[in-house]
Write a protein that binds this DNA or RNA. Structure first.
Length: 423
RNA sequence: GGAGAGAUGGGUGAGUGGCUUAAACCAACAGUUUGCUAAACUGUCGUACUCGUAAGGGUACCGGGGGUUCGAAUCCCCCUCUCUCCGCCA
């Protein structure tokens, strides 16, 4: 959510910036400013009315004490009107605030000045590409067939137990999962992140805090009896640690790393893009989250990008980094870098990480603040990124490292798997 | 799931209708004193909205929501959560 005071003072900037996201905010911004003026006017009236009532109530108290009951009773009659007025005014104000809030949540976050214009994925800017794309023979096997061949991921079994998109990992497949999780967490801890093991279910308030609710409700599994949601990412419980908090400026940067299962309904998706491990209802991901001072958040974003790049380098996977264009960015982000690994048998780039700076957009919604050096209360900046999501990393590892003897494990991972080859 | 007790500022905790402008203590911050540290003393010490160039005002907030009253932290109703005991349970 954008800050109201900023919109009020810089309406043109908001409209101009949001045009990069192909969002025409002119009319909305105007409505918000008009409604805000009305809110303040109503607030003033209400405060004045209540102030009068308070004055009279005090006087009545004094009169009773010195025994002037008649005068007190006379004053009481005067308060009836004030009471009715403040009731009406309070109701109006409450409605205005709801309306205002409903308008404010319609505005996406403003993209950073470095965000390229563009409509869709093909307009994203390739920042850089690293690693050698393996030259596989024409009969290279896609990961879903490798998974069956080596009996490491059983998709049909998952269908039997649960349904499509819930694969069963077994043998060295299961051990590879555990190794990757451990590797990613270990690297995160080495980089100074505090490890968190969050709940996998969250309440409504947390869903609102990070913006999954109300608009993306259909993306989450909902346990209706207890009104809890299965998390789509550890970002939700971890970022909500800091909901309604006033942190100390000296605590910055706050760094958390968390592994979790992630659950996504992925309503309406189908086709070859979702084959095998490419898209699942349940998957594993290690997430990094940082809370940072506004002056330092972009420096932090670069560090997080470098952290993710380091992971992919150690896994010896070819990858590229994209700066998302305005049209492809999420509603909440100010700047997002996507990481894609090359999956050599599918001959496709697969997204494995998305690293974003949300600036104050989430903090405003969550009321995450800190006291700055000038003594003023300000919203902190929040950032997060996947480091990393497992399924597509596994897909690329299987495809890229396939040999006639079996699938080779990269050196950095061997201490975690305890084996060198899947055969 | 059953029975009972609770929820007050960063923390402990007083407060049963107007004397509360939420006491007191602790923590924190600033200053004074002092070789340093410590201690002592003095002062500051919530958040949001709003009026004002400012100084400084106003309003709301004692878990959340409603109600009674001229006036509510205090009385009433609903909800949420926590604790204790019982039941169930890895």
């Amino acid at each position: 959510m954008l800050e109201l005071s900023f919109i009020r003072e810089n309406p043109d900037v908001v409209v101009e910036r949001l045009s990069v996201k192909n969002f025409d905010a002119a009319a909305l911004v105007q409505q918000i400013i008009a409604l805000d003026a009305k809110r303040r006017e109503t607030q003033k009236t209400l405060d004045d009315t209540l102030s009068q009532s308070n004055q009279i109530a005090k006087e009545i108290g004094k009169l009773y004490k010195i025994g002037k009951t008649d005068e007190a009773n006379a004053l009481k009659e005067k308060t009836a009107l004030l009471k009715q007025q403040s009731k009406n005014c309070g109701d109006d104000l409450a409605q205005i605030e709801i309306d205002l809030q409903n308008l404010l949540v319609l505005l996406p976050n403003m993209p950073h000045s470095s965000v390229p214009k563009g409509k869709a994925a093909e307009d994203n800017e390739v920042v850089r590409q690293e690693g050698k794309i393996p030259d596989l023979s024409a009969d290279a096997i896609p990961h879903w067939d490798l998974a069956t061949k080596y009996k490491i991921v059983d998709f049909e079994l998952g269908v039997k137990i649960t349904g499509a998109g819930f694969p069963v990992y077994r043998g060295k497949g299961a051990r590879l999962q555990r190794a990757l999780i451990n590797f990613f967490l270990t690297e995160g801890v080495k980089a100074g992140y505090e490890e968190i093991q969050p709940p996998l279910m969250v309440n409504e308030a947390s869903g609102y805090g990070t913006g999954q609710l109300p608009d993306k409700e259909g993306q989450m599994y909902h346990a209706t009896i207890d009104n809890l949601y299965l998390i789509p990412t550890a970002e939700v419980p971890v970022t909500n640690i800091y909901r309604d908090l006033i942190v100390k400026a000296t605590d910055f940067p706050i760094k958390n790393v968390a592994y979790s299962n992630c659950f996504r309904r992925e309503a309406g998706s189908y086709g070859k893009d979702v084959r095998g491990l490419n898209r699942l209802h349940q998957f594993d991901k290690v997430e990094i989250v940082q809370i940072q001072h506004p002056d330092k958040s972009y420096e932090t974003l670069e560090q997080m990008v470098e952290h993710v790049a380091g992971l992919l380098r150690k896994l010896e996977l070819p990858f590229r980094i994209l700066r998302l264009c305005g049209g492809d960015m999420s509603f909440t982000s100010a700047l997002t870098y996507d990481f894609e690994v090359f999956s050599a048998a599918q001959k496709k780039w697969l997204e494995v990480s998305s690293v974003s700076n949300f600036e104050t957009f989430q903090a405003n919604r969550m009321k995450l603040r800190f006291k700055d050096d000038d003594g003023k209360m300000k919203f902190a900046h929040t950032l997060n990124g996947s480091a990393l999501a497992l399924p597509r990393v596994v897909a690329a590892l299987l495809e890229n490292n396939q040999t006639p003897q079996g699938i080779l494990i990269p050196d950095a991972l061997k201490p975690f798997t305890g084996f060198d080859i899947i055969d």
